[in-house]
C-alpha cells in the first residue's frame, strides 16, 4: 500500500491563528557579483504548536537558506515568516537554532556551563533562575558531569549536546535544527536522535529539523516536508504515521518505516532528476 501522494507546491497549511510557525510564499534570491541566484523559489507550510517536522531535500536544495530565513538571520526576498502570528524580521526571542557546525557555534573561550548560561544572562534573567534552567538543561542532555570543561575538550557528539542544552535552557517555543547530526559518527547520531525525541516530548516545543538523511527524517518526524532541488519548492508534505513511541531497533524494523523511507527516497530521486510538482512549474513560469 502506497502512502497517499498529493503533488502540490505548498505544504500543509492551517487556518489563521492556529499555526505556531507559518512560512508563506518565501522566496530568496541572492544578488552576487556573478548575477542573481534563486536559492528558494516559493515555499509555504505551517507548523502547529508542539509539532516535530523534518525538512528533507537533496543537497543544494536551499535547506539552510530557508532555515536562515525562518530564524530571521536572512530576510526573504518575497513572502514572510510568521511566528505565533507575528512577522519575523530578526531573530525572535521565542526561537532557538542548533547549527550543524557544533565546533563553530559554541564559544570556545567559555566553559560548557557559561555557554549554556550566556543567552539567559544576556536576557537579564536572575542568577537563581538561570542556575536552575542551566542545571536542568545539562541534565536533560546528559552532560551534568562536565559543566567546567571547555567545549573543545569534548567529543563532537558531546559538543552538539552542549548546543542542544543551550537551546533547551533558552526555553524557546520553536526549535530549529540545521542538520545538527551531519558531522557526528553513526552511534552518537542514534543517541542524539533519541535525545531530540525525548527533549521534544518533555518540553512540548515545536521542532523544525532540517536533514539530508532520509532515515533520520522518517525516524524523527511526525511529518516530513520534502523539498525539490533548487530553485526550491515543496515536493511533498508527508504525514509519518508511525507509532509515537519510537526506538532505534524496533521502529526501524517496522514494515511501515521501510515503506515510508522508500517513498521519501523516491521523491528525492525524482526531485534530483528535475521533476517538479505541477503547481510549482506554473508558479515558476509565471514569475
Amino acid at each position: 500500500m502506497q502512502p497517499e501522494t498529493t503533488p502540490v507546491s505548498t505544504g500543509r497549511t492551517l487556518p489563521e491563528g492556529q499555526a505556531m510557525l507559518s512560512v508563506r510564499g518565501v522566496k530568496k534570491v541572492y544578488h552576487t557579483d556573478g548575477g542573481d541566484i534563486e536559492a528558494v523559489r516559493n515555499l509555504t507550510f505551517d507548523l502547529k504548536a508542539g509539532e516535530l517536522a523534518c525538512l528533507v531535500g537533496p543537497s543544494g536544495s536551499g535547506k539552510t537558506t530557508l532555515l536562515k530565513c525562518i530564524s530571521g538571520l536572512l530576510a526573504p526576498t518575497e513572502g514572510e515568516v510568521l511566528l505565533d502570528g507575528a512577522r519575523v524580521t530578526g531573530p525572535p526571542k521565542k526561537m532557538a537554532v542548533v547549527f550543524q557546525e557544533y565546533g563553530r557555534s559554541l564559544f570556545p573561550w567559555m566553559r560548557v556551563r557559561e555557554n549554556v548560561e550566556l543567552p539567559l544572562k544576556n536576557a537579564g534573567m536572575g542568577k537563581a533562575e538561570r542556575d536552575k534552567l542551566v542545571d536542568e538543561a545539562l541534565e536533560a542532555v546528559g552532560l551534568d558531569h562536565v559543566p567546567q570543561s571547555y567545549p573543545w575538550q569534548l567529543s563532537g557528539g558531546m559538543q552538539q549536546r552542549v548546543a542542544i542544552a543551550r537551546a533547551v535552557a533558552y526555553q524557546p517555543e520553536v526549535l530549529l535544527m540545521d542538520e545538527p547530526f551531519a558531522a557526528v559518527d553513526a552511534q552518537t547520531r542514534a543517541d542524539l536522535e533519541d535525545l531530540i525525541r525525548t527533549v521534544w516530548k518533555k518540553l512540548g516545543v515545536t521542532v523544525l529539523f532540517v536533514t539530508h538523511d532520509i532515515d533520520e527524517s522518517v525516524y524523527l518526524g511526525q511529518r516530513v516536508i520534502i523539498l525539490s532541488s533548487s530553485p526550491t519548492v515543496i515536493q511533498e508534505d508527508l504525514e509519518i504515521d508511525l507509532p509515537d513511541e519510537r526506538d532505534q531497533l524496533n521502529t526501524r524494523a517496522l514494515p511501515r518505516f521501510t515503506e515510508l523511507r522508500h517513498h521519501v527516497y523516491e521523491q528525492i530521486q525524482r526531485a534530483k532528476q528535475g521533476h517538479r510538482p505541477a503547481a510549482a512549474t506554473q508558479a515558476g513560469s509565471a514569475s
Binding site: G72, L73, A96, W109, L118
Partner: peptide
C-alpha cells in the same frame, strides 16, 4: 556560525562586543 549563534540568541550591542567580538 558563531556570529549567527550569538544573533539568534539575541546577543547584540555591547554584549556582543564583550562576549563574542573581543574574545574572538
Amino acid at each position: 556560525v558563531l556570529s549567527d549563534s550569538a544573533h539568534t540568541y539575541g546577543i547584540g550591542g555591547w554584549a556582543r562586543v564583550r562576549y563574542l567580538v573581543l574574545p574572538s
